[in-house]
Amino acid sequence: MLTRIVKLTFQEEKIDDFLAYFNTINTRVSTFENCYGMRLMQDMYHPYIVFTYSNWKDESALNRYRDSELFRGVWSTIKPWFGGKPEAWSVETQFEDGTFSPNHPEN
């Protein structure tokens, strides 16, 4: 499974617009084919910074979403509200709850 972490920095006056918009699309994104859930987190001290964490079957599933009409619509809506360059990481879990993953070199 692949986890996609995205950091989005908004113009301070646009964060409420983003949160309202996110509320209208979050279910469509989190139930996209081979997406195993999504989480939105907001920085406690800089509330105009948010992070999305989404879990995907694999990189191909993520890329199908990124190539979709849904993603293009979301991105074109929120892009003008950015106050900084988005950052994104695709990661695999190596350690969780006291156990290394099967792909970890110590196993």
Rank of each mutant, 00 (worst) to 15 (best):
T93Y: 02
W81T: 03
T99I: 12
Y48A: 03
K79A: 15
K79N: 12
S101Y: 10
V50I: 15
W75H: 13
N103F: 11
S68W: 02
R64I: 01
S54M: 05
T77L: 07
W56R: 12
T52L: 11
S54N: 07
N103L: 13
G98I: 06
I49N: 15
D97N: 14
W75R: 14
T52S: 14
Y53P: 05
G84E: 03
I78K: 09
S60R: 11
G83F: 05
Y65L: 12
R64P: 04
W81M: 01
Y53W: 05
E92S: 12
T52N: 10
E69L: 07
F71D: 09
S101K: 08
E92D: 11
T99G: 01
P86T: 06
D97W: 03
E96D: 14
W89M: 10
S54F: 01
F51C: 11
G83C: 06
F100N: 13
N63R: 07
T77R: 14
P86I: 02
D58S: 13
A88M: 13
E87I: 00
P102N: 11
F71R: 07
R72I: 07
Q94A: 11
Y53R: 09
E92M: 10
E96F: 12
N103I: 14
S60N: 14
D58L: 13
F82W: 07
K79Q: 15
N63P: 01
S101T: 14
K85Q: 02
F100L: 13
V74H: 13
R72H: 15
Q94I: 09
S90N: 15
L70M: 09
P80T: 05
P80E: 08
K85I: 05
S60P: 04
F95E: 08
Y45I: 01
A61I: 00
A88N: 09
S90Y: 01
Y45R: 03
W81I: 07
F51T: 14
R72L: 10
T93L: 03
G98W: 00
D67L: 02
F95Q: 04
T52K: 06
T52P: 04
N55E: 15
W89G: 06
P86K: 01
T77E: 15
A88T: 12
F51K: 11
K85N: 03
D97K: 08
Y45S: 07
F51W: 13
D67C: 00
Y48R: 05
K85R: 06
T99K: 15
W89A: 13
P86W: 04
R64D: 03
H46N: 15
A88C: 06
W81E: 04
E59R: 12
T52C: 01
T99C: 08
Y53V: 15
P102W: 09
A61S: 14
Y48M: 04
T99R: 14
V50R: 08
L62S: 00
T77F: 04
Y53A: 14
T93F: 00
K57P: 08
G73Q: 14
N103E: 15
E59L: 12
T52M: 09
S68P: 01
D97T: 05
E69N: 09
W89H: 10
D58C: 12
Y65A: 07
Y45H: 09
R66D: 01
F82G: 02
A61G: 00
D67M: 05
P47K: 08
F82K: 03
V50Y: 03
K57M: 13
